[in-house]
């Protein structure tokens, strides 16, 4: 059974169709990189997985749960799916530790001591444990993003979604975040990552999915995709991305 299944999914923003008949199957432990020009619907695609965006046609199934507009299915899905955002979205009025323990304590009803222990483990994992008592505003972008990853991991998700996690970072901080993501990938987490970092895609992805104008235009292994792109729009996109 696939971990995530999109079956002929279409989505509209008002009268503008942003996803057209998208079908995608993600197996457990698979690492998918979604790429494409801006406006192609890549972010919308992954935001549909954890119900941040509703969809109008088709069917999305996450770990056996059919995702609908019903709050019950939404909560069931969100309990298993973690997300890391382009703009980190840490809670600025809480310390790093509180950022991480908030959800486990209040959603999973974990005891405070256990939640803090879990949080420190994840902070060690992303190599930022010494910043636990600071506030997000006191950290750099790369550090904040690593905290955001740790925060998602504290809820022990089956799937991790990444929405352009390094696009808002200064170039020298991109590597520290990508390193964390690579180590996560090596530990067997199912990941869907929207990114422009093609080096990361080559290193980690099992499959590269190329989207354009709301449709999945091409999907292949990274090797095949980068060296022998089939679709003309993929060829065009790669020539623009890889040429600077």
């Amino acid at each position: 059974m696939p971990m995530i299944e999109f079956e002929n999914v279409s989505k509209w923003f008002g009268s503008f169709q942003v996803l057209t008949d998208v079908s995608l199957s993600v197996a457990q432990g698979e690492k998918i990189v979604v790429c494409g020009p801006s406006g192609s619907g890549k972010s919308t695609l992954i935001r549909c997985v954890n119900a941040l965006e509703p969809y109008q046609k088709g069917r999305i199934t996450v770990n056996g749960v059919h995702l609908t507009e019903d709050l019950k299915t939404i909560h069931q899905v969100r309990a298993q799916v973690g997300m890391v955002f382009q703009s980190f979205n840490l809670f600025p009025h809480l310390t790093i530790l509180d950022n991480l323990t908030l959800a486990p304590m209040h959603v999973r009803k974990v005891a405070k001591a256990d939640a803090e222990e879990r949080a420190m483990t994840q902070l060690h994992r992303v190599r930022i444990a010494e910043q636990a008592q600071k506030y997000p505003g006191q950290l750099s972008g790369g550090q904040q993003q690593r905290v955001a990853i740790a925060r998602a991991l504290c809820m022990e998700p089956q799937v991790l979604l990444f929405d352009e996690p390094t696009s808002a970072l200064d170039p020298e901080m991109v590597k520290e975040v990508l390193d964390v993501m690579v180590s996560l990938a090596q530990q067997g987490t199912t990941m869907i990552c929207v990114t422009h970092e093609m080096g990361f895609a080559r290193e980690v992805a099992d499959r590269v999915v190329f989207m354009d104008a709301g449709q999945i235009v091409e999907q292949n292994t990274p090797q095949e995709f980068f060296e022998r792109p089939q679709h003309p729009r993929a060829v065009d996109f790669l020539s623009k991305i890889l040429s600077h």
Binding site: N50, H75, R78, V81, M83, N89, F91, A103, H106, M155
Partner: peptide, 22 residues
């Protein structure tokens, strides 16, 4: 910022939890 609410939703927090804590 709306992004914080989305992050809280992605963590599975309910409406009331988001309002009172975030």
């Amino acid at each position: 910022p709306r992004g914080q609410i989305e992050a809280a939703q992605a963590l599975g927090m309910s409406y009331w939890l988001i309002q009172t804590k975030i």
